[in-house]
Simulated assay, not measured.
Amino acid sequence: MSQSTQSNAIQSVRTQNFSRTGWFPIILVTLLLNSAWADSPRPIAVALLEDDTPVFRDYTEEQHLGFLLGLEYLTEGSMEWQGRPVSAHPVPAGGWFRDENYLPDAHELPDFSIWIAPVQARYAHRAMQYGQAYQRLTLVPASPANQLPVAQYDLAFRTFYRWQDVEAGLYEWASEQEDLIWVSAVDSSVRPDFFRVANIDVSPRSSGASVIAEVDDLARLMKNPALGSTWPVLLDWLPMLSDDVGLASQNMYFWLPDLASLVPLREFSGLQGLTYYYYDLPNNDANTWLVRTMLERHDRLPSHYVVAGMTAAMALLTAVAEADTVDAEQLAAHLPDMAWDSPRGVLSFTAAGETRQPLYRTELRLQRQLEWARPVELDGQGPYWTQP
């Protein structure tokens, strides 16, 4: 055998031996790394869908602030949950939000399995539609509109209150009065008992003065008239209802949607108010932490949109911990009947994607050191639970 042939033969043997033994450690390491990667929990990555239109921009920022605070609260600042890294990614609303005639492809949508819907109802609705079509779990923290059809979508869940629940809760409470005047919107989901309740329908074209005149006419026919209303405009006419119509504060029942609405009510101690949150109601650890953190970092109390965002974050992390997945469809299948803690107390989802939550019967009290009227839960009343 020539020296050249012998050299080639030796090289061939070495190559064969390496193919048998030399590649094995590399393949083994690769398989182990792939196995470890496959076994490691997938990160919790969330798209915060931003609405930058006037008015709703501020609400959206508040909601997303609350969501981030909720992540921080449950992860104790580590941004890691059950071994999974947690992150939230602001995503500006593009053409697929704004243009009703534009149908995006999947690659144009946020590439995260979990979406937080915008505050504005029509944008939240569109997010739910696309989320359902492309398998994104969509949480709706702050869109109380009556006609937002969460139940049509298996992957959509609303963590905020529904307006029809507010109406039902306030009406159930106010109708305990013998003589009730009920003021409601034309598209109200509550239909009063016309044999016992005098009903006044209002529309966007109704003026407060015209409604006051109708209330006055009806009140004159009643022995002890009471008034119930979810129409926010009527709060501006409380002085006239009190002074001219003669309704006592304790005989008026209103929805108290946020802290700002309590400022003009400071002079109406005794007014009956239904609310789903106040900064010291309910009294629980999550609410205490939220209030303290907002005061320390922002020198203000949390708005309802901040509370809504934090509630959504706590629902999501609870679901991930219990279902041990971030897959949209598996999470959606797990969410119905799941209970979770929130600044508003213990909540749970219905099969239709709505939230069972407490609404509190309160009475406004005057505290001179405050610039607003303080709602205090009435003893022995207990909360009104939505979506039984």
Rank of each mutant, 00 (worst) to 15 (best):
F157H: 08
F56E: 01
E329L: 02
A36D: 08
E377V: 15
G382P: 10
L33P: 08
E322F: 01
S203D: 13
H89P: 07
G228M: 02
Y102E: 03
T386K: 06
V91K: 00
P85V: 06
F18I: 04
P25T: 03
P264V: 15
N8R: 15
I26K: 04
V46T: 13
T15E: 03
R220T: 12
F349R: 02
D201L: 06
I26Y: 12
P302E: 03
E100T: 14
Y171F: 13
T355P: 01
L148N: 02
R292E: 13
Y102M: 03
V150T: 09
F56N: 01
Q272E: 08
D105Y: 06
G246F: 09
V202T: 12
S303D: 12
S35P: 00
I200A: 02
N199D: 13
R162I: 01
S175E: 13
R84T: 04
I10F: 10
V86W: 06
A315G: 12
L364E: 07
T60S: 15
R136Q: 12
W173L: 02
T15Y: 08
G345N: 12
Y153R: 05
G77H: 02
Q132I: 00
P25A: 02
N34V: 13
L49C: 05
I27C: 11
W289Y: 13
E329I: 07
V211Y: 06
P104L: 02
W23P: 00
V86R: 04
L221D: 12
E267H: 12
T350L: 06
L366K: 07
A226G: 10
L347P: 10
V13E: 07
V245Y: 08
A286S: 14
Y59T: 09
R365L: 13
H64V: 04
G169Q: 01
Q152P: 00
Y305P: 00
I114S: 06
A151M: 04
V326I: 15
W372S: 10
L65S: 09
R14V: 13
I114A: 04
T311R: 14
W37I: 14
Q11G: 00
G95T: 06
Y360L: 08
N224G: 00
P90M: 05
K223R: 15
R368H: 07
T288F: 07
R344V: 06
I44W: 07
D216N: 14
E167K: 06
I200N: 07
L234S: 09
S40Y: 11
S249W: 09
V197I: 10
I114P: 02
D236W: 03
R300V: 04
F268M: 04
L256T: 01
A47V: 02
G273K: 01
P149N: 02
A36S: 13
E322R: 15
P257Y: 11
D258L: 01
W231T: 14
A352V: 00
E80R: 14
T293H: 07
L69V: 01
W81T: 10
L234M: 15
R220D: 11
V186P: 00
R191L: 03
A209S: 09
V211E: 03
S78N: 10
D216Y: 09
I181Y: 05
S342I: 13
Q129F: 10
S261Q: 15
Y253T: 08
Q6L: 11
Y279A: 08
D337R: 14
S113P: 12
F254C: 09
